[in-house]
Amino acid sequence: MTALADITSRQRRSMTALAALTPTELRLLVRDWTVLVFAFVFPPLVMLILAGVFGTRATVGFGWRNPQHYYVAASVGVPVIALALVGLPVTLASYRERGVLRRFEAFGVSPSKVIGTQAIVTAGLILVGVVAVLAVAAPTYGIPHITHPIQTALGLAAGTLTLVLVGIAVGLATSSARSAQAIGLIAFFPLYLLGGGGPPKGAMTGAMHSISNALPSAIPAVADPWLGLPGLGTQLAVFAAWAAAALVAICWLVRRAAHQP
């Protein structure tokens, strides 16, 4: 068989890398209990506590909304931040550090395909995390009415896309899994707390509110249209700016990696 005929025959039979890698990567991530706890246990637990603490009396800080409703809607954005900024960068940095990307690349699976698989798996787990939050909320505080369903879905999708890109950039920029974890955690808490996961944005001081408005947190992007609060337009513009910056960083980091010894 000629080399060309051999290639054609092999390519016809082979699965796409994404289809082969995705189930395996999903199984590997599910075996990482730290990610599971952070993505699936932490958001519902914090929701249960905060919604229980603040009760149902609407105040100005919550935009005159029921605090229990607020924390259910806000907690839907927490798995996005947790998985995109803590789970994804650690896995990617670990793959780079240990030569896993190199091994796949030698087998014809480019780093971009492995990164793409990680992004798909992360997005899938985010959806599971959202379902977990709602599953815990339904029998306890109830699921509040979604005022703007399309905008809410748009906010969740835009937040997921942006934070996954930021997570990829962090994973490619950091030299080790440990440093990726440190940076991921440092990024997680401001996005969680200043995004309105703890105190609502309406209760923040002017300076903190301004900082909050510039952060790409998925929490207000989901909670605001869900509860009929304004602000999604600004949030989408912030997402666009962060996503563009992350994309530029990713391209530069991939090019740099190709020229390193």
């Binding site: 793959y95 240990r98 091994r103």
Partner: peptide, 9 residues
Amino acid sequence: LQTSALPER
């Protein structure tokens, strides 16, 4: 390859 690995899990 000389220096490469697979995912730990």
